[in-house]
Amino acid sequence: MSPDRKLPRLPLSAVFPPPPGPGVPGDPGVCPPGGPFRRVHAERAVVLGGPAAILLQVAHPLVAEGVAVHSDYTSGPARRLLGTLQAALTVAFGDTAQAHEMARSVGRQHARVRGVTRTGSPGTPAGTPYRANDPHLALWVHATLVWTARRVAHRYAGLELSAAERERHWQESKPFARLFAVPDDVLPGTVAEFDEYFAGTLRRLVVTDAARRVAADVLTQRTAPPLPGIAALVRSVTSDVLPEPLAVAYGTPRTRGRRVVATATRELLRAARPVLPRRIAQWPHAEVARRRLDAGAQVLQPRASTAQV
């Protein structure tokens, strides 16, 4: 980021996105309730992985080109990160209509993102076409969200998934992916295939100048009121979450200072998580989803009693 340009400040209230309306009683939404996918994404700590997810996404040259040409992170990257967060939470925890409407809204924005690369990079020559709703690019974006959420929930909230839960977490993420233009024939079938796909894509990523410009803005956070050290915290946690070669490529290697900050943050959050009230530890979207399901059960109970009589 240019030293003479300052990004807009983010009001701290924006870090607490409001949940959608109560929705239709009993409607489970598109993502299965009660499973590891919702359990992972309910954790507020997952927001710490937002910058890492963005940097993973734009390390794909076609995604980076689309962001560079069609998105203006410089007008307020934190706001855009939180807009993405709100969309993800609505799809994950809203009722069916709310999830579909949010996905349609994002789809309308993505429909305008298309073009050809202006410069070349290893494996991606200049003039390569791209479009945001390309199923393979959409899969990569989805994969970064799944991977970072799973990693951050484990490292910073102490939520460790068994092998069976990791499989279920991946399967439960598929309805989310389908809403964002990722068809079944593109989705990896099992979590083992997902992990293989993710590792293979990582090996082909290239951090271009366009990606570095996005990173410079994403990693420079300014809040209102000011929070001293917030940018250093974001860089330290992002360096800890990213695969190390990418952290180095983005200029945020795991220095001793960053390791100390990330470790202290990790230990503090993991120690606090078991004693935090659910309304603090989890997004309100998850509570709205629970109440919606409970309301549906209450509606059905009188009918069941009448049938028994």
Results as ranks from 00 to 15, higher is better:
91 V>S: 09
22 P>G: 04
51 P>Q: 13
30 V>E: 12
267 E>W: 06
107 G>D: 07
123 G>D: 06
228 P>A: 14
307 A>G: 00
308 Q>E: 10
182 V>D: 01
1 M>R: 14
229 G>I: 04
246 L>I: 10
96 T>Q: 07
232 A>P: 02
175 P>I: 01
253 P>V: 03
55 L>A: 08
254 R>S: 03
267 E>K: 03
184 D>T: 11
50 G>P: 06
303 R>H: 02
61 P>R: 12
190 T>L: 02
296 G>I: 02
219 L>Y: 14
165 E>M: 03
133 N>L: 15
142 H>N: 15
71 S>Y: 15
7 L>Y: 00
135 P>Q: 11
95 D>F: 10
48 L>V: 09
287 E>I: 07
17 P>E: 08
138 A>F: 12
76 G>A: 04
191 V>G: 00
263 T>K: 03
53 A>L: 13
25 P>F: 00
108 R>I: 13
193 E>D: 15
262 A>T: 02
81 L>M: 15
154 H>N: 11
48 L>G: 00
94 G>H: 08
135 P>V: 13
25 P>E: 03
170 W>C: 01
257 G>M: 05
192 A>K: 08
83 G>N: 04
202 L>N: 12
45 A>L: 13
190 T>D: 02
32 P>F: 09
58 V>D: 06
125 P>K: 01
49 G>V: 13
149 A>N: 15
158 G>S: 07
255 T>D: 07
64 A>P: 08
58 V>G: 01
135 P>M: 14
35 G>S: 03
267 E>Q: 11
98 Q>C: 06
106 V>D: 14
287 E>A: 14
51 P>C: 10
211 A>N: 06
254 R>V: 05
126 A>D: 03
291 R>N: 12
244 E>R: 04
201 T>A: 12
56 L>N: 07
245 P>L: 01
274 P>C: 00
258 R>K: 04
220 T>M: 04
146 V>W: 14
205 L>G: 05
38 R>Y: 10
